[in-house]
């Protein structure tokens, strides 16, 4: 039972997180190349901006920001699910090899279509999604043992090993692509938010609209699973089947996010931890907070990256890693 005090606190946290997200949004729009001041942003949002301001906001800034927010949410929820079902606080979709798999697919894409602009770019998310999903399935198959099912710890190890191997393959293929295409690819790998077009917002949105409520509905299953496997079986959870479904949802969310945002790690690691420390381990409360936190983190990282190196920007993935890896080490030293 969630007591009313905790619920109130969680509601407050969500409200504060929403305000923080809006704040980061305003800061993001008002900094860097082609910026709008907060006042002008207000007017432009309500249709009173100049044509130039409308162009900047609705064509350039807004789609990119929305892609960043959605990808941050997707990665955060994906990480939360992985941490709960593996009962390993260090799990993250990037560490599990999904980024590497998507990256390999992106190399193939660049080899076939080139890395420039053009309409073929709209197929890239499909490639990346396929690569990420395929890698996850391979990891699942490789760590499956007859009669025992999946050992979550082994699954993480297999993921680390497989992503190292895939990185080897990526290196081979990437050295063969033309130099101008290489730039696009290097930026993708480094996690530059590249899908700054309404099409990509639309490509990502359905995944979140469908999968987020599904996951929140499964909160109770996640609650028991994150405690103890035997307990879950005792409480009547079909562990193996549920774990498979949840894993696939986590992978789909991560792969979809990465396919438009580029290779970003650590958001899926950090956001659930921050959320758990704010509102506790109950999934009903902490999943929404984790999603908000993920969005704030990624949008902040993208903004910082743009401010540091104007106008091309440091890829958000790099900024996130610089924040995320020390956090990871802190988590490692904290938990016994």
């Amino acid at each position: 039972m969630i007591n009313s005090k905790k619920l109130r606190k969680a509601q407050m946290t969500i409200v504060i997180a929403a305000i923080a997200l809006i704040l980061v949004f305003v800061i993001s729009v008002s900094t860097g190349f082609a910026s709008l001041s907060p006042m002008r942003l207000w007017y432009t949002l309500f249709g009173q901006g100049t044509p130039r301001e409308e162009l900047i906001l609705f064509t350039f800034r807004l789609p990119r920001i929305l892609v960043t927010i959605l990808a941050g949410m997707g990665l955060a929820i994906s990480g939360a699910i992985l941490q709960s079902i593996t009962r390993n606080p260090l799990a993250d979709p990037g560490i599990l090899g999904i980024n590497a798999g998507a990256g390999l697919a992106v190399v193939f894409f660049v080899m076939i279509f080139g890395g420039g602009s053009g309409s073929s770019i709209y197929f890239l998310p499909i490639f990346a999604l396929g690569g990420g999903m395929l890698t996850a399935i391979i990891i699942y198959v490789l760590s499956y043992k007859k009669g025992e099912g999946i050992d979550p710890g082994k699954m993480l190890l297999v993921g680390v090993g497989l992503s190292a191997a895939i990185s080897g393959a990526i290196l081979t293929l990437a050295s063969k692509i033309a130099r101008e295409d290489y730039d696009f690819f290097a930026n993708w790998m480094a996690g530059r938010i590249w899908g700054d077009d309404w099409v990509f917002v639309m490509a990502l949105l359905p995944w979140l609209i469908i999968l987020l409520p599904t996951i929140i509905r499964k909160s109770n299953i996640l609650n028991t699973m994150s405690l103890n496997e035997n307990l879950s079986i005792g409480l009547g959870v079909k562990v193996e089947k549920e774990r498979y479904i949840l894993l696939m949802i986590a992978v789909a969310l991560a792969a979809a996010s990465v396919s438009v945002s580029g290779g970003i790690a650590f958001v899926g690691l950090m956001a659930p931890h921050i959320a758990r420390s704010l509102v506790g381990p109950r999934h009903q409360l902490f999943l929404p907070v984790a999603a908000m936190t993920g969005a704030i983190l990624l949008l902040t990282a993208d903004t910082i990256g743009r401010v540091i190196l104007d106008p091309s920007g440091i890829p958000a993935g790099i900024i996130v890693s610089i924040i995320g890896a020390p956090y990871f080490m802190y988590l490692m030293s904290k938990n016994k």
Partner: peptide, 28 residues
Amino acid sequence: RITLAGAAVSALLSSLGEGLALINKLSQ
């Protein structure tokens, strides 16, 4: 745990390296 830590530290250090390379246009 050590392997996971290795993956995380590698991610951090190579990100820093990539960042430096991008700032100085040495990536390629």
